[in-house]
Design a protein around this nucleic acid. Structure first.
Lengths: 246, 246
DNA sequence: CAGTCTTTTTGAACCCGTTCAAAAAAATGC
DNA sequence: GCATTTTTTTGAACGGGTTCAAAAAGACTG
């Protein structure tokens, strides 16, 4: 399918330097001109290296995108810290984190679609759903672990374990909505966040209710299963397609 | 962004014929060799027309994909009919329809990812989330309308109205999972369907419970809002990007 | 320092999707 | 039937991502 050569690790200081140069140039161009307008040739030229050289360090354009994604994620982490230190209730914490996520992403709205696109391709190494190892996801889920751990909400233990992952999923859904949101200043997305956070908070409270226990148990068992699949499966069968060319 | 010229309507019988020829050839190749291996050049050559000619009738490769998608949808509709005529309970109906969906899609698993990808791009006319007019979505939701209408499940009226759309969303989620499912014979996806359908059925029953009424009301109000956005918004603001080139 | 092995760098080449002006063929009007 | 207009068809060209063999530059060894 998609060749997607691995990006080589650098072996000398010179290489290190070149790689960094290419990366920063790429990020710059991506920020200034968006995805389509940023070409590998353009990056190479602006960085003063040859096209082939860029490909030596970054196996594909997607790898550059990944770097970009990483950066916004780190920005979001940094932006979230104050709120997580101040707020105590689960609801307030979640609300802050989600709103800050959108704040962070906002400057890149116009090409976020493409970003999401490449990330949704099952064959892409960037796909947060497929590859368990994907540091993107691990880091991302970790934020929600902190979010839950630091709150003193009354939530059943079994749910508490799964909650970070569930919130991560929820947050992916919000991003998907945001990508398609064309309202001014993304008002709709923010409203959606406000309302869904409120709803989620209510639901989590309800989840302790004995009436809901069987459903909760069943649902959580299912979630757990899926998560296990996600973190184990990939190594055995997923790679077969790669070698199956002729 | 993506130029995506519109596919011209044909004006003569000769043109009609050529267009059909190109389409069938394309579907054939897509089926046999997947997305990446099917090139516009390849299609044109196999169909015995020039490359430019193919582009005259189909503005882009995506348009061909759209045709492909349409076909599988129709297959699914046809396959679902018997079950919808036989089954009475909502649960059984949903289970059948979902399983048949996966059955229908299965032959195209390897390139379904790409299909989903192009569909997730906000700029793509194929995107079922963005363009209300997208017949793909209308048709698709319609199936779930029939599914709900034909069942005699006891479900609150307000929920009943939104249920088809919610089930459509649910079905999109399952497809997303399926795309990433590498288990043999897609066993995991089928199991997921079994369990989630069961769960949904239980949830729908619970939804009538007075305890849940406030949450239900709130959630449905939210869903309704989003749906309205979806079906109206697109005309005013979404198109600006199109004309905003320089 | 000379020779060898690695890493970095290059630039040409390949294939692909897409565009476009102009040729060929059909349809239309008189 | 001929001129004009419309539709269909062509093929070359452009710009883009990606690959690759081989040159250049460095690192390492004796």
């Amino acid at each position: 399918m998609k060749p997607a050569k691995k990006s080589k690790t650098t072996k000398t200081p010179k290489g290190e330097q070149t790689k960094a140069l290419i990366l920063t140039t790429a990020l710059e161009m991506l920020h200034e001109r968006g995805y389509e307008q940023t070409t590998m040739r353009g990056i190479a030229e602006k960085a003063g290296v040859s096209l082939g050289n860029a490909y030596h360090y970054f196996g594909s354009k997607d790898h550059l995108i990944q770097a970009f994604y990483h950066r916004t994620h780190e920005d979001h982490l940094r932006a979230s810290r104050p709120a997580l230190e101040k707020e105590a209730s689960l609801k307030a914490r979640l609300l802050s984190v989600m709103r800050l996520k959108i704040d962070t992403l906002e400057p890149y709205h116009e090409f976020a679609g493409v970003l999401f696109q490449t990330a949704a391709d099952p064959h892409s190494p960037l796909n947060p759903f497929a590859h368990a190892a994907a540091p993107v996801r691990r880091d991302s889920v970790k934020l929600f672990e902190d979010l839950v751990a630091g709150s003193k909400a009354r939530v059943p233990d079994d749910l508490r374990t799964e909650l970070p992952y569930l919130l991560w999923l929820y947050h992916m859904g919000i991003i998907l909505f945001w990508i398609h949101d064309t309202s001014r200043k993304r008002a709709r997305t923010y409203r959606l966040i406000d309302q869904t956070v409120d709803l989620l908070d209510k639901l989590i409270s309800l989840a302790s209710n004995p009436l809901l226990r069987p459903v909760r148990k069943k649902a959580l068992k299912l979630v757990l299963e899926l998560r296990e699949d996600l973190t184990s499966e990939t190594s055995d069968e997923a790679q077969q397609t790669e070698s199956g060319d002729e």
